[in-house]
Each structure stands twice: as structure tokens, then as C-alpha cells.
Simulated assay, not measured.
Amino acid sequence: MGPPYWCRTMLCSICVQFFLQETLEKHHECLKKQRDAVKYRLKKLATRQTEITKKSSVIKESVIRKYQEIRAILDEDLRTTLSHLEMEERATVSALDGMMEKNCSLIQDIEQDMARLTVVLEQADKEPDAMSFFLYPEHQDMEAVDRVMDVLSRTDPSSVSLDEAKAEQILSLTNNMLLLICSQTPIMKTLIKSYSSEVCLDPETAHPKLVISHQGDSATYTDTWQQLQDLPGRFDTTLNVISLQAFKFGRHYWEIDVTGKTYWELGVTYPTIPRKGTTEDCWLGRGDDSWCVEFFEGEYTAWHGRVPHQLPFTKRFSRIGVLCSFPAGLLTFLEADKMAPLFSFCAGTFTDCLHLALCPGHDHSGTNARPIVICNAASPTSDL
């Protein structure tokens, strides 16, 4: 005969309680391990943040020192060059001063002779018979002429000059130096261009009023609605087109030619950007899926998540660079000629692959008819 019912019930209750307690303890231990793992990761992230900040500071200080050294060398060379030029200038000016003094002295002597002759002439008018007494011998006139000719020959202005050959050589060398510096600057140009990634536009995403070139390197607005297949990925309201290629890691750079255009938008987008309907998220930069810079009516605006950032530029740029860095979570728009940053988005971590995205805009009565062109386009048949 087994234990009574109440005993069995108590034992069962104790077992359940023990099981629950053991389960809760295991769960508590699991949560503790998870918390410790997250705390450890947080500590590693903070350490990494400190390391990157320190490393960036060291790099910036090193770059500053190099620029200071370059500036010091150029300043010293400029001082030396100007010193030589100034010494030569002082010497030639001094030589001309000496010549001018000789001519001034001669003028004084001539004027003194002229004054004496004036006195003689006045006396001759009063006593004509005495004129012969004051006549100058002919040889004195010849001596005066010879003296003047001698001074004139020894004070020829053309005999004094700067070393024009040296001046030309200095100008040539400085011009060569300038060309060399220009070929190496901006320094970031060479580096950023090394991140160039070829892309071509995907015609199957283009709005029906966009004509995509055969090479996939340009998009042009047309007022004619083209009879194209209504694919799921095609924009049907906004004048957008995105690249065939998508990028998930690394650093990438593209240059887009917007010469002659009065309206355009360009940027990057996740493939999840809405393509259909009139929702604002279909516009580049208006939703959380895309980032862009817009040029409209002479003003530049950076967009993301419906938030506009007015940019302080009025110049109409001809080429815009787009630099995307997955490791840094950074998206930077640049004026491509000088590599001057226009605006940067610190996106943190990109959660999906990115496509280059373009909008050439309406033609605005012909004022915006030119295409928007990718300068480092790939062949449409190139591998993704």
C-alpha cells in the first residue's frame, strides 16, 4: 500500500517547487551571463573608442607637423630668394644713383658756365668794344662737349639691369614647384579616388519618365511616359533610379556630373526604399532608408529621415562626390574638384546593403534638361 494521498500531494508540490526554483536559478544565471557578456562588450567598445580617438589625434598631429615643416621650408626658401633679389635690386639702384649724381653734377657745372656767359653778354651790350676780350677759345667749347659726351657714355641707363636670366629661372622653378604641389593636392583626392567603385544604373528601377543610357551611366528626364513593364522595383511617382550594384562593406566613392543642371538629388539608399505611390518616403532622404543632397533653386539641402539640413553654399558645383565608409558608418558628400566636404551623415552602422541613387529632376521648361552622369560608371554586364 502506497503513501497516503496527502503525502503524495505534498511530495508533488515539493518537486514542482524545487523544479521551479531550479529553473528560475538557471534563468537567473543565464541572464547574469548575458549581462556580463554585454558589459564586457560595452567595455571593449569604450576601449576601442578611446583607442580610435587617440590614434586619430596622433595622425592629425603628425599631419599638422608635416604641413608645418613644408610651410617652414617654403617660407625659408622664400626669404632666401627674396634676399638675393633685394640685394641685386639695391646694387642696381645704387649704380643708377651714382650715374644720376654724375649727371646732376654736370648739369650744375653747365649751368654755372651759362651764368657766367650771361654776365658777359650783359656787359657786352653795355661795352661792345670789350666783347673780344671775353671771347672763349674754341678749344674750351670742345672740352665742354667732350666732358658731356663722356658723362653720357658712362651713364647709359641700358648698361644697368637686373639679371633677367636669373629672374626667368627663378620664375620657372617656382612655377614647376607650384605645378608639383597642385598635382599632389588636394592630398585627399588621390586617397579618396582610390575608393572608386564602378556602378551602373538599373533601368528596371527607373521611373518611366527617365531615359537610362545604354551604358547605364546617365539618367535624363523626358516628358514622355515610356511604356515600360511595371516591375515591383520600379519607381512610379518619384523620378528616381538606383544602381544595379549594391555594397555591403568597405569604402566606396562615386563622382556624379551635374553640370548645367538647376535641380537634382543624389545619395544612397537601402533596397527597402518604397518604390510605389505618393508616400514621402519614396523621395530620397525623406525616409529612414535613404540619404541625399538636393540642389534646387540655387540652394543645397541634405536630407535624411525627413530632416532637412540647409547647406551654406551658393556656387553651382559641376561634380559631386559621394564617399561611403561602412567601417565608420559615414556618408560624406563632397565638391569633387577640391574634395571639400559639403555635408556628412554619421549613420552609425548601416543595417543593409547600399545602392547609389539619383534623381535628375524635371526639365523645368528646358533649364534642367541635361542628364545626370556617373563619372566612374561600370558596364551594365559587369559582375555585381
Score class of each variant (00 low, 15 high):
Met1Leu: 04
Pro4Phe: 01
Thr9Arg: 03
Thr9Asp: 01
Cys12Gln: 08
Glu29Arg: 14
Glu29Gly: 13
Leu31Phe: 09
Val38Ser: 02
Lys39Tyr: 01
Leu42Pro: 00
Glu51Asn: 10
Lys55Gln: 09
Ser56Pro: 00
Ile59Pro: 00
Ser62Thr: 14
Ile64Phe: 06
Lys66Leu: 12
Leu74Ser: 10
Asp75Met: 07
Glu76Ile: 10
Asp77Leu: 15
Thr80Phe: 12
Thr81Tyr: 02
Leu82Ala: 05
His84Gln: 12
Glu88Lys: 12
Arg90His: 11
Val93Leu: 14
Asp97Gly: 08
Asn103Glu: 13
Ile107Cys: 04
Asp109Pro: 00
Asp109Cys: 02
Glu122His: 04
Glu122Met: 01
Glu127Arg: 11
Asp129Ala: 14
Met131Ala: 12
Leu135Lys: 12
Met142Cys: 08
Ser153Tyr: 07
Arg154Glu: 13
Ser158Tyr: 14
Lys166Met: 13
Gln169Ala: 12
Ile170Gly: 09
Ser172Asn: 10
Asn176Thr: 05
Lys189Glu: 09
Thr190Trp: 05
Leu191Glu: 04
Lys193Gln: 09
Leu201Tyr: 01
Ala206Leu: 05
His207Ser: 08
Leu210Tyr: 10
Ile212Thr: 08
Gln215Tyr: 11
Ser218Thr: 11
Trp225Glu: 06
Gln227Asn: 14
Gln229Pro: 04
Asp230Trp: 00
Phe235Gly: 03
Asp236Thr: 05
Asp236Arg: 00
Val241Gly: 01
Ser243Ala: 15
Leu244Val: 01
Ala246Asn: 12
Gly250His: 03
His252Gly: 08
Tyr253Asp: 05
Trp254Phe: 04
Val258Thr: 03
Gly260Arg: 03
Gly260Gln: 01
Tyr263His: 13
Thr269Asp: 02
Tyr270Cys: 11
Tyr270Lys: 11
Pro274Met: 02
Arg275Asp: 02
Arg275Met: 08
Glu280Tyr: 06
Glu280Arg: 07
Trp283Phe: 10
Leu284Lys: 01
Arg286Asp: 02
Gly287Ser: 07
Phe296His: 15
Glu297Pro: 00
Gly298Gln: 09
Pro308Met: 12
Arg316Ile: 06
Ser318Pro: 02
Ser318Asn: 14
Ser318Gly: 08
Ile320Leu: 15
Ala328Trp: 06
Leu331Asp: 11
Leu334Gly: 03
Glu335Ile: 05
Leu342Glu: 07
Phe345Gly: 06
Gly348Ser: 06
Gly348Leu: 06
Gly348Asp: 04
Thr351Asn: 12
Cys353Gln: 12
Cys353Asn: 07
His355Gly: 09
Cys359Met: 00
Ser365Trp: 06
Ser365Met: 08
Ala369Pro: 00
Ile372His: 04
Cys375Leu: 12
Asn376Glu: 10
Ala378Glu: 06
Thr381Arg: 08
Leu384His: 05
